[in-house]
């Protein structure tokens, strides 16, 4: 039993395979997330990342296993867990501002209209949106601006856990870069716990405290937990100069390119906890790159 802030215990997801049997997406996945931690999960399509996210959000139910957050079992969606989806998380008939105010009003039902409005505007400004776009509909905003609004909405309700499901997947590389910076800036000012899915290795290194690596499905599992030993505050330009950057990056590329396939398949273990990987070139004398099982 883990004592982490968020603890995922022996989570399994199986679907009927249409031929009378069952397909196991992932099995006995167990991991924990500490309060204030930024955790990114990486893995190939079909390994069940999005399913794990939906289970954490309470939008889906696992076949087996439980998720415990802050001492309580997660069941059903809640304002304690904010979600930013890749697309369509804004309601297209509401303006950018109204998309935020409805969430704030849902979170703080006792607040006055003015309080809700001030709070919402503050968060929209925090993600770099100016007042002239507040009253635009999502269809009148660029993809990047839309995701800024989504992020503003997610932070405005200060959930205990923020879930980001490939939030920048649909954006072009340049826009993605600037929004990553915005996200880091907004996140740095809070003690927000974040769990994020991405396909982008560089994005993962830039944002994460820890990266969870998943093996390929079926029977996927969280195989490794890679610590990002690069101090904050980070920014996209300087981070590549850090001695640990390419070491970590190579490790991730190797895993996704090779190990994720080799390690795939069912295991006999009752509980699949990720092995912690710590790569730190800045202190080779103290601790060599090693794989420590926990």
């Amino acid at each position: 039993m883990s004592t982490a802030f968020l603890s995922v215990e022996r989570l399994s997801q199986r679907y009927p395979d249409g031929a009378g049997g069952q397909t196991t997406i992932f099995e006995n996945a167990s991991f924990g997330i500490e309060k204030g931690e930024f955790v990114v999960i990486l893995g190939h399509s079909g390994c069940g990342k999005s399913t794990i996210m939906n289970i954490l959000a309470g939008l889906a139910e696992a076949t087996e296993g439980v998720v415990i957050m802050d001492g309580k079992e997660v069941s059903g969606p809640s304002l304690d867990r904010g979600v930013v989806f890749q697309n369509y998380s804004l309601l297209p008939w509401l303006s950018a501002l109204k998309n935020v105010t409805f969430a704030v009003a849902a979170r703080y039902p006792d607040w006055s209209k003015d309080q809700v409005l001030t709070h919402s505007k503050k968060h929209l400004e925090m993600v770099g949106l100016s007042a002239d776009v507040f009253n635009r509909k999502p269809s009148q905003l660029s993809g990047g601006m839309r995701q800024r609004v989504s992020i503003a909405r997610a932070f405005s309700i200060s959930p205990k856990l923020l879930l980001l499901d490939e939030p920048f997947g649909a954006l072009d590389a340049l826009t993605r870069g600037t929004i990553q910076d915005e996200l880091l800036k907004v996140w740095a000012g809070t003690n927000q716990t974040v769990f994020m899915i991405t396909h982008d290795i560089d994005e993962a290194i830039l944002l994460a405290d820890r990266i969870l690596l998943m093996t390929n499905g079926p029977f996927a599992r969280v195989a490794e937990s890679v610590e990002i030993t690069i101090p904050r505050p980070r920014n996209r330009i300087e981070i590549v100069e850090h001695p640990n950057y390419y070491a970590i990056r190579n490790h991730l590329v190797q895993f996704l390119g090779k190990h994720s396939k080799e390690l795939a398949g069912p295991t006999d273990a009752a509980e699949n906890r990720p092995a912690t990987v710590r790569i730190d070139k800045t202190a080779p004398a103290v601790r060599a790159p090693s794989r420590l099982a926990v």
Binding site: A57, G58, L59, G76, P77, S78, L79, R81, G82, V83, F85, N87, Y88, S89, L90, L91, W93, L94, F102, A103, A106, R107, I157
Partner: peptide, 29 residues
């Protein structure tokens, strides 16, 4: 109605009536 919008309502803990009037009705209008 797009499931993602219903999910937005669910993650914001909107009740059945508020989901109907704030999300489903405008989406289907």
């Amino acid at each position: 109605v797009r499931k993602d919008w219903v999910n937005v309502a669910r993650t914001h803990e909107l009740g059945a009536l508020r989901t109907a009037f704030m999300v489903i009705l405008p989406a289907a209008a």
